[in-house]
Design a protein around this nucleic acid. Structure first.
Lengths: 222, 222
DNA sequence: TTTATTTAATAGTAATACTTTCATATCTTT
DNA sequence: AAAGATATGAAAGTATTACTATTAAATAAA
């Protein structure tokens, strides 16, 4: 996938000024990913980010109106990236079952190193999605933000994979529930395996998360 | 279940002073449940709670050292209550399959009115579990808190139901993953159905959440 | 080179999540 | 009923957060 001239476009509603339009903007995104990982979202502040990139807090606010807005931006970037990978990985697979299997694997596997995008570290971003994204959508403003399209990319991914489910079994009643359960579930399992292992059955190097969910989907969809 | 002299005991590590030991303590718990529901956890403060119950912020801190600690207390109360209901509902069911089915239903159904506990509104508490509990365990302090037993009751519920899975199929590799996926999944679905409906297939009055998960478990465990 | 745009520096604000101190009320024990 | 202990209240204080506003300096575009 390296070298391909892909570019991920983000809905302009998700930023005040496009961070891709300047060095400072890219540094904001790049460094915020590292810092949110290190500190956790609640301890991460624009002031600290400013110090880290040798810039000023007020300059960061010109790109994102709040740290919540930055998190929403990152989430959307992530799901656009996953959508791209998903489409890329599943086109030209003729068997519907194989296609769904590939999709579930992609959604549940660990994200390994990636070199496609210079200013975004996808491995760290995946960790943020796992441990911080609930904080973005479990707020009182969810309905308002949803109307503005803040969660569109995520919903689009769920829709695409739900469609694959329906291709296999057009009568299956709960495709969206199944896929959102798998996505959220896999993220939880990755987190639990690190911090609350008794809630999982993850074993080192056995790929249990992927095996569990691909198996679950296969058995459920029929 | 009304009238039974049950009492839920909470690990003393989870409070500074036992809220059940005084009227003020009970008022704190009772009213915080209402306020967290109304305002959301981030906008809820001990100051506002103090005003609401006609008491002082500093008095509330004598019961809980932080609002995070209060949330953890509520979560533990909830899971102790669920554990009690679970044991009550599944004893004397001889068929292992029926027992598991009953358990999954209990874990995924909507919580309706309950009158057992005067100072805790279980319907509202369930809503808090759904929309706020991720905020308790997705923190940087998770490992430390887990060591102190902050999430024991939840883990015990998962263990009990996992054991039921193993009774049906002792060779099933992923009982904990299955049950934690179902519990978290059902909560997500309830939330999504209100706020991000395109991620679900919930329809009014059709009990789809329970149907989806009981079906999923049945098909997966075999 | 003038003009426009971007960034930096500084200060300020209201609110949060507490902590501290001290006074007062209430309950318990004798 | 008095003395002591414990629980609660009132008030003030602190460090930090999540911004906003203003103005100046640096940089880029016409």
């Amino acid at each position: 996938m390296e070298g391909l001239p892909i570019h991920i476009t983000i809905n302009p509603e998700l930023y005040t000024k496009n961070p891709e339009s300047s060095d400072l903007g890219k540094k904001i995104v790049h460094t915020s990913i590292e810092m949110i990982n290190d500190l956790g979202f609640e301890s991460f502040t624009f002031r600290k980010l400013g110090v880290a990139i040798g810039s000023n807090e007020s300059s960061i606010y010109r790109y994102f109106e709040s740290k919540h807005a930055l998190l929403v931006y990152l989430i959307n970037w992530y799901w656009s990236w996953i959508e791209y990978k998903l489409v890329f990985a599943t086109t030209n697979i003729t068997s519907a079952k194989d296609r769904l299997n590939t999709a579930i694997t992609l959604l549940t596997e660990e994200v390994k190193e990636d070199n496609s995008f210079t200013f975004i570290n996808e491995v760290l971003l995946n960790k943020i999605i796992i441990s911080e994204s609930a904080k973005a959508y479990y707020t009182k403003d969810i309905d308002e933000e949803n109307k503005k399209g803040f969660y569109k990319t995520y919903k689009r991914v769920v829709q695409r994979v739900s469609d694959m489910v329906l291709e296999i079994n057009p009568k299956f009643e709960f495709p969206h529930m199944l896929i959102s359960t798998v996505i959220e579930g896999a993220h939880h399992q990755r987190y639990f395996s690190q911090h609350l292992p008794s809630l999982t059955d993850v074993e080192e190097g056995k790929n249990n998360v992927v095996r569990f969910y691909t198996d679950l989907v296969q058995k459920t969809v029929v």
